[in-house]
Amino acid sequence: MSDTKQQVAFFFDANRCTGCRTCEVACKVENGVELGPRWRKVRTVEGDQDGGPYMYHVSMSCNHCEVPVCAEACPSGAITKRSDGIVIVDQSKCIGARLCAWACPYDAPQFSAETGKMEKCNFCSHRIDAGTGGPACAEACPTKALQWGTLDEVAAKQGATAEFGPLPDADITQPAIRFIPLKLVRS
């Protein structure tokens, strides 16, 4: 990334996700996350449309929102947003009040039973800062269902939308993620 001042973002294409969870595990391996907290989660959505069942997956972590309500809610100022938009948590300041977890519409803040502190996706900021790549999850995705870039880049992808299926109203936090919803053709 040439300009680190631009908001970074995720991109998720439901038509390419097989639900393999490689992103989840890549995240844990890259960041040394122990059992319990899950910085990234793939959820399966099931439903019915036009009389037929459908199913798709959504891979999400912290969406590094443009309006980080977690940071607003945090009483101890442990959550901050960097100039490149990455929302990071300083665990030394976290007191474990869990207000962030209530405020976040995406279940991104995770609590470690071991430390009692909140932890969450940091967009692999260590890799971004070192110039060694992007988030491990996106780079590990075998089908490129999950990608990353600047918000402008991912928003420019064809069919990309901020609102997606059962996800919360994007206006709440203005998440830095864009989706391509499942195309339910079924003809």
Binding site: G96, A97, K117
Partner: peptide, 25 residues
């Protein structure tokens, strides 16, 4: 007892400018 680290409770007022919890405290 809702805090994971009650001993650090004093930190809870730091974010008075935006956190309702800080203000509450």
């Amino acid at each position: 007892f809702h805090l994971s680290t009650p001993l650090q409770a004093a930190r809870a007022v730091v974010n008075f400018s935006s956190s309702w919890l800080s203000r509450e405290i």
